[in-house]
């Protein structure tokens, strides 16, 4: 599988990263180099192998469904680039 500049443009959009038009061919070439290298995984017979999702051997723990934290608006907002009162502010979303 290989990608062209249109595919790179689409991936950048999905990843929400702005990429200048003139950077697309270079990125496509890098991508194809990496994809060609990881292509070797197709040689491995994985039929019937259960995919391994987590890093640990054990199942995740359960805990009681109860509130353990909260009411810390000032600490949560302390690093906000922009805020209005107790809210994060962003450009207008709905016209």
């Amino acid at each position: 599988m290989s990608v062209d500049t249109a595919a790179i443009r689409r991936i950048a959009k999905l990843a929400r990263i702005h990429v200048e038009e003139e950077a697309l061919p270079g990125l496509a070439a890098e991508f194809n180099g990496i994809l060609q290298w990881i292509e070797q995984l197709q040689q491995v017979d994985t039929s019937g192998v259960e995919p391994m999702a987590g890093g640990g051997a054990t199942a995740l723990r359960w805990r009681a469904d109860e509130v353990t934290d909260g009411a810390q608006a000032e600490r949560v907002l302390a690093n906000a680039p922009e805020r209005e009162g107790e809210y994060f502010s962003v450009p207008k979303v709905v016209e």
């Binding site: 995984l41 197709q42 491995v44 994985t46 192998v49 259960e50 995919p51 391994m52 999702a53």
Partner: peptide, 8 residues
């Protein structure tokens, strides 16, 4: 595929 190879 990668998750399966990881299991192997």
């Amino acid at each position: 595929k990668a998750q399966q190879v990881r299991a192997l």
